[in-house]
Amino acid sequence: MKYNTVIIGGGLTGLVSGIQLQEQGQRVCIISFGQTLLHFSSGSFSGEESNTDVQALLKNAGIATVAGGYRLTPLGELRPAALTLEGYYHSETAELKEKSFAIVRLPKYLGLPIEFLQDTLTAQGREVSIITPDEVVGCPAEVILVPACKAGYDLKKTYGKRVSLIAALPPSIPGQHIHAKLQQYFQKIGGTYINGDKVVRSTLQTDEKGVRVQSVETQNLGDELIVADHYILASGSFQSEGLQSNYDHVWEPVFGVDTNAPEDRTAWTALDFFEDQPYQHIGVLTDEAGHALVEGRPVSNLYPAGHILGALRTDIQNLNDALRIAKNL
C-alpha cells in the first residue's frame, strides 16, 4: 500500500497534519491505535494565541470555535484558552460577565464537581442555583451550565444557546466529537484512516545518502508493507504509548527514535504531585530541520510532531507544528 505520507497517530496533531496534506493534494494514510489524548479534552485548545489557519481548518471539518478568551474549568475557575468549542461557556475577560448561574444536576452523573463549582462561583459574588433537567425551561439564571457528558449534549441539542456546556471528568464527549469530526472530514476529502491498529515493524534504510524509513507494517494488516515518501510520527506521550517505559529506561517503540529521558529512573519524577514533573518534558529528539534522530543520525523522511516531543506542549503549539510540517512536505 503506497501513500505520499503516512502519519502514525490519529490524534489532534496527526489528523490536522493529515487534513492539511490531503487538502494539498497528497494521498495520506493515518494509522491510529485506539483513541487519543483528545479524550481528556477540556473543550478548549490550550496555547498562547490561536492561528486563523487552524481555526479555518477546524471550521472546514465542522468544528466551530471561538478564539481567545477564557474557558471555565469544572472547578469553576477561568483559564485562558486559545480556542474554545462553540457551545461551551466562554468568557472574553478574566472575570465572569454574568451575575446569575444555574447548574444542571443530572441523575446518577458524578463527573461534574457541582459542589466545588457552585462554591467557586459563589465566592466570586455570583448567584448560583442547582436545577434538574426539567427546570431548564423557565429558569431565570443568565447562564445555565450543563456538563459535557452524553446527557448534557442531549440537553444542548434540545435547548441550544440557552444552555452552555462545561467540561467534566472523563469520559470526555467534547474530545470524542472533535476526533470524530476531524476523522470524518479527513476521510471525506480522500484520506485513509486505519483505526485500532498499530505499527509493529518499521524498516529503515541506510545508504550513502543517509537514513530513511522504507516501510512500516501493522498488527492487523499482517505482512502488508505500507510505503510512503514521508512519515509523520504523532503518536503522543506515555499516555498513548508514543513513549514507553519500564524499570530502567524510556524508548520510542515504532522507530527507536532517540529520547532525552534521563538515564536514572528516579530523575523522571518529582516528589510532590503539584511540582513540575520531569517526565512531562521527556520527548524524542530531532535535528534543527525537525527530522527524527535515530542513534544520533537524522532520518530524512521522518518528522515527529505533537506530544511525542513533550507532554506539556500546548494544543496550539502542536497544531502549528502540524500545519508547518505539512506545508513543507
Binding site: 485506539g34 479524550h39 472523563p170 469520559p171 499516555q239
Partner: peptide
C-alpha cells in the same frame, strides 16, 4: 487498563441504556 474510560464512551450499549 488506565481507566481512561474511552471504551465506556464508545460502547453502544452503555450509551443507550442504564
Amino acid at each position: 487498563c488506565l481507566k481512561c474510560s474511552i471504551c465506556t464512551a464508545v460502547c453502544p450499549v452503555m450509551n443507550n441504556t442504564d
